[in-house]
Each structure stands twice: as C-alpha cells, then as structure tokens.
Design a protein around this nucleic acid. Structure first.
Length: 675
DNA sequence: AAAAATAAATTTTTT
DNA sequence: ATTTATTTTT
C-alpha cells in the first residue's frame, strides 16, 4: 500500500498532510480507496463491522478537508438512528459540525424539499405529515362514507389492520398498479379492486384537501417533482456536488430512482450489504444494490470484507448462520482479532428466568470493568423486552430503549398534538375532528358535520373563533374548545412578533391549563399522573425547537425523540433495542433474547420471508465485539394461554462447535436443555 | 345521537 | 391485559 498511490494522495493534499497521514493510519486499503476515489459513481460493498459507515463518514470529512464546501454535500440514510450516528461520528472526526452539510433521512430531506416547492405539488408549505395511524383513520372514514357499502364480513377483511393502506402503499412504493399489487399479494380482495381503486383516488384527493402528505408522498412526490420539473432537478443537481447514501440495501424503488436523478451531475456514492437487508416489509428493494454495478458500468466497486468489530468466534457463528440463505452474494467475512470466548447459547425456563440470567451476566460484566454503555440487549419485537426492563428497573440500572416506542401513538400525545396541528395547518380535518370528539356532548356525527361546515367556510380557524359556526348540541364543549384555540392563537401571534422565536413548550402548557388538563382528568382518572408525564416529556422535547413547524416536522419523522444518551439521563446507560433499530451500532457485549420459534423468527413470517428473518439474526449477532449471548426459553405465557416454546430455528441450525451451551436456572433445571 | 356496556382482537420490524 | 370495535341503552 505504500507504492504509487500514496504519493498521489500526498500530492493532492499537500495543504493538509496531517489529514492524509491520519487517513493512511486509520483506514485499510479498500477503505482508503473508497474514501479518496474520484469516480462519479462509487459503490461500497461491505459486510458487517467492516467499516462501511466509517468509510462514508471519512469520505465526507475528506471532501471537506479537500475544500468542498459542506453545503455541497448531501448525506442520506434510511433511519434516523443511522443519521444520528453519522452526524455524531462526522462531528467527532472534524472537531466541529460542518455547517451547511445536510445529513438526514430520505424522508426528512424530502419533506424539506417539498415545503420549499409546495406550490408545485399542490400543497402549502405548512403541510401536515401524516403517520400511519392518521392515514388509516382517513381511509376508514372515506370507506365509511362510500355509498355502496360492502357486506360486514368483507368490509372487515378488507380494512382489518390497515390492509387497504398497505395495498396502496405497496403499489406506490413499488411503482406497480393497484391491480398488479392486489392480484399478486392480496388475491382474496381482487373482486373489490374497483372499490379499492376508488378509495385510493379519494384518499389522494382527501390528502390534498387536508394539506397533508403521508410518508410515501415524501419520497414519491419528491421524485415526481424532479421528473416533472427538470429546472428544479437541475437546481439540486448543481447544488449538491456529492451525494452519499448509507444502507443502500434498504432503499426501495422510489429511493433508488431518486438517487438515480443525481447521477451524471453529482458524484454519487453508496454503501451497503445485501446480507443486512432487513426492510423488505417497507418495500426495500435489494435489487438496487445488486444491480448497481450492471446498471452503472462506470461505477467503482469497492469491497470491504475484513471485519474489525468482532472476534473470530462471533464472525464464525454469523457466517455459519447466514450460509443457510441460498441466494446470497458470496462473502468472505473474516476477522483478525485475537481469539476469545465462544458465543454462549442459554436455555431458560421462561422469560423471567431468562431476564434474571441476563441481569446476572450484565452485572458480572459490569464488575469486570465494562461500562453499561458497552452492553446491549436486543430482541425481535419490542414486547420481548418487558421482563428485562422490569429487572433493570428493580435493580436501578440505567438504560435507554430504542425501537418499538409508540410514544407518539399514545392517545394523550395525539390529543395535544392535534391542538398544535390545527394551529399550524387549519386545513387538517383529522385533527379538528379529534379535538371536537374530546369535548363532552360531541359525537362522531356532530363532529363530521362541524368539520364540513368549517371547511366550507374556507377559513376553518377564523370561522370557529368568530363563533359563526355552532353545533346543534354540545355547545358548551365546542365553546370551550374554541376558547382554548383562541388563547393558543393569541399566544402564537405574540411569540411570532417577538424575537425569541416561538415558545412551543409554552403552547403546550397553555393547552393544558386552558382545557386539556380537565379532559385528561375526566378520561383517565386512574392514569392521570402517568399520562401527564408523557405530556411533560413532549413539552421538554418541544422546548428544543424554536418554531411550531419545526417541532411538528421533527415529531412526524420521529427525529430527536431518542433523547436516550445526550442530556437528561446519565451518560453511562445500557441499551435495550429492537434488532432493526440496532443496525449500524456495536457493543462490547450483546445479548439477543427471546430466540424462540414464533418470536424470532416471528410466527407471522412466511416461508419465503425466512431469509430476511435470518438476515435479521445475522445483523443481531454481528453487533457484538467480544461477548455474545443468545438466549431462548421454553415456556411462554402470552397473555391468552401459555404456549410451549421451541428454540429458534436459527439456534437449531448452528453447528455445535460454534457456541457453548448454558442453562439459566440456579439449580440445574430439569430436562431438555440439551441440544 | 351520545354514552355506556359488551365483545373482540391484538404483538413485527420504520419513515 | 389492554385497547378497539360493536351493540345496547339512555
């Protein structure tokens, strides 16, 4: 590696030879090639722990060190977690945050872009971002309003668990017609295709009326904007000289096409690993990464196969598992780290015993000097963490959780947000309805009529506050809601004219004092305190934003909710996380719990989805640097009847020499721990 | 039309 | 067990 190439680097960077030195010291050969490559299209293919994110971060830093203005760099990720991670690392590497650089998720960038060009996509720039619940509610309402209703049975089948929303989303994200999607994936609903299509188009209209976009729109309309308005596209192609994309294997077709839009002008550079593709349920399209080299023959493909993270024992276990996936780019992941203990497979009687085993080992590790923040407990589904969480609470061990937090879906949070949303985007009918329903004496029918009156007036907020529109019944409740909104509007206007920016936390306080506190008391007499705490957390989060719009957007895209480390709590915390949310992270010690048939792999996984489930297991085990514990239990008391559990397929598949077996119970436990 | 009572379903994973 | 949908009562 110290041949001709290094001279080239030195020449390029004579201004900053210290940096060149650092690169050569801290990166291996393929990483260095990737970081300094001049090609217009670059693909980094890399296994877990091989430093692909690191390479991407170094590349961004390198560009800046070479004089590229940070404002010309666009760094896109799939999840917020990944974006946070990247930002943190980049800042650390450069010593300070490079002002002007954009790093965030596809969705958040899409939202910004669409706000800027809102009029081109039939919205106003204050559009609301609807989450899945919002769009499901909208669809349900539209379906109910349709004249030719279906038989009860059929309706239930069609709308159960947001099936309709899924169909629409799948069709839009995979760029297939509804007809194709229903035929392929929902054949039982094919006879209702016309109805489905009608609802889908009503849904589009309704979103426009409500001045709202759903998650899919943030990507789709972005692509549409570029395709329909070449001058807009050119503007961004010029503005961003470098596009960097992380976790490319998780992008869907629309995201892939968005990336494509930049090729030819900006230098496009993506990293990913097909073996870590775990977002098929979000329509991730592995083809994006697999066909990349064919599609762009000019692309430089860099492979990074050395694993720097884990011990050879952990890498061996991961490799032994992933080979069961037939269709797979051949990988030769290897580790040159010193040998260490083998991963441990633990059998416990039930979730409780599993938790107590995990806690024992956590405490052991801690006593041996490992800080909490170097340990993590991972699981397939959020609910699997409960026993461990209880145990941590009992012992007073600091921890933070990632993934599966349905904080925003708590009803009191949605209520408070509805006030804010109406204030920010008065066209938001769903929020109006929600607020009205909260009032005593107002039911569904009245609320629907109220909203349609408000909408007709053209100025919903004005009409409500002026007292021109009054329901037949529930006058009291309506009046009190209007008073609250009026107070809020006055406060907001005062804030906006001042210089300190908008005090969003103050608005939330006002919502409470002006009415919601009473409602909360009435609706949840027993849980009042607990629910209040949730709102306090929301207010605390709000105080970090200086405008209502910014706050609502960050919430819709779930940024900044992860206050985990950072301020507030102690900085030495244990991590509890879903495997999905753990991607891209690593810890010295990792516990993967709940490895039972039915939990992981999840019981709702079909046979053809098993490879993805196995990739998920692969992601989980490769998070560990040194200590890896895999645990299972055989008695499962899921609330409705206990069920016998078997160890996960992924444990049974493992060759015996890959791991040590252990039992959790203190006194040896009876029977079937052996496998 | 709203509130209360009863029955039914719910647990992937993320934006 | 808890939340959500549906039915019955007011």
């Amino acid at each position: 590696m110290e041949t001709g190439e290094s001279r080239t680097f030195a020449e390029e960077d004579e201004l900053d030879s210290g940096w060149t030195e650092q690169l050569r010291r801290e990166l291996n050969r393929p990483q260095l090639e990737f970081v300094t490559a001049k090609e217009a299209v670059i693909l980094g293919l890399a296994g877990p722990g091989s430093g692909k994110t690191r390479a991407l971060v170094y590349r961004a830093a390198h560009l800046i060190r070479c004089g590229v203005p940070p404002g010309k760099i666009l760094l896109l990720t799939f999840t917020n977690k990944a974006a946070e991670e990247m930002k943190g690392r980049l800042q650390q590497l450069l010593g300070s945050w490079p002002g002007g650089l954009w790093a965030g998720t596809f969705h958040s960038f899409g939202a910004q872009l669409l706000r800027r060009h809102a009029s081109l996509v039939q919205r106003k720039s204050n559009f609301t971002i609807m989450d899945e619940d919002d769009s499901r509610a909208m669809l349900r309402r539209l379906a109910a309003g349709l004249p030719h209703s279906l038989e009860e049975e059929e309706r239930r089948l069609l709308f159960r668990r947001g099936l309709l929303g899924q169909m629409i989303s799948r069709s839009r994200n995979s760029q297939l017609s509804l007809r194709e999607v229903v035929l392929d994936d929902y054949p039982f609903s094919f006879e209702h295709l016309t109805l489905i299509e009608e609802l889908a188009s009503l849904y589009e209209q309704e979103k426009e009326k409500a001045n709202a976009f759903d998650f899919d729109d943030l990507l789709l309309r972005w692509l549409e904007l570029f395709e329909r308005y070449p001058e807009v596209r050119e503007q961004y192609r010029k503005r961003f000289a470098h596009l960097l994309v992380d976790e490319f294997q998780d992008t869907n077709i629309v995201q892939g096409r968005i990336v494509e839009q930049f090729i030819g002008a900006a230098s496009v550079c993506a990293v990913g690993d097909d073996a870590q593709s775990i977002y098929a349920f979000r329509f991730a399209h592995v083809g994006n990464i697999l066909s990349f080299p064919e599609k762009y023959p000019q692309a430089l493909v860099v492979r990074m196969e050395q694993n720097y993270r884990s011990t050879p024992e952990i890498v061996a276990l991961a490799n032994a598992s992933i080979v069961f996936n037939r269709v797979q780019l051949p990988k030769k992941l290897f580790s040159e780290k010193a040998s260490a203990e083998k991963p441990v497979v633990v059998g416990a009687r039930d979730a409780r015993e599993e938790a107590s085993f995990v806690l024992d080992r956590l405490n052991d590790l801690r006593r041996s000097g490992l800080p909490w923040k170097e340990m993590a407990v991972l699981y397939r589904s959020a609910f699997l963490s409960t026993e461990v969480e209880f145990a941590l609470l009992r012992q007073g061990i600091p921890y933070c959780t990632f993934g599966g937090v349905k904080f925003l879906q708590k009803s009191q949070i949605k209520d408070v947000l509805a006030y804010l949303k109406v204030l920010h985007n008065p066209a938001d009918g769903e929020s109006w309805r929600r607020l009205a329903l909260l009032q005593p004496g107002l039911g569904q029918a009245t609320c629907n009529r109220l909203w349609s009156d408000l909408q007709k007036s053209g100025d919903p907020l004005g009409a409500a506050l002026s007292g021109r529109i009054v329901p037949a019944r529930g006058k009291e409740g309506w009046r009190s809601l209007c008073l609250t909104l009026e107070a809020l509007q006055r406060q907001l206007a005062a804030d906006s004219s001042g210089e300190k920016g908008q005090n969003v936390a103050g608005l939330i306080a006002l919502i409470m004092s002006e009415g919601y506190e009473q409602i909360l008391h009435k609706n949840y007499p027993d849980q009042y305190e607990e629910r209040l705490r949730g709102i306090e957390r929301l207010a605390d989060n709000a105080s970090r934003h200086d405008s209502l719009g910014a706050f609502l957007e960050s919430l819709a895209l779930e940024e900044s909710l992860f206050t985990g480390a950072g301020d507030g709590g102690p900085d030495d915390q244990l991590t509890l996380s879903t495997v999905h949310s753990a991607k891209g992270k690593e810890w010295e010690a990792v516990f993967v719990i709940g490895l039972n048939e039915g939990s992981f792999p999840s019981h709702r996984v079909l046979d053809e989805e098993m490879p993805e489930e196995r990739r998920l297991f692969y992601v989980a085990v490769t998070r560990a640097r040194r200590h890896l514990y895999l645990s299972t239990y055989w008695q499962d008391y899921r609330s409705w009847g206990p069920s016998a559990g078997a160890p996960s397929l992924f444990l049974k598949e493992l060759p015996r020499e890959c791991f040590e077996a252990a039992l959790a119970g203190q006194n040896g436990l009876d029977g079937n721990g052996g496998y």
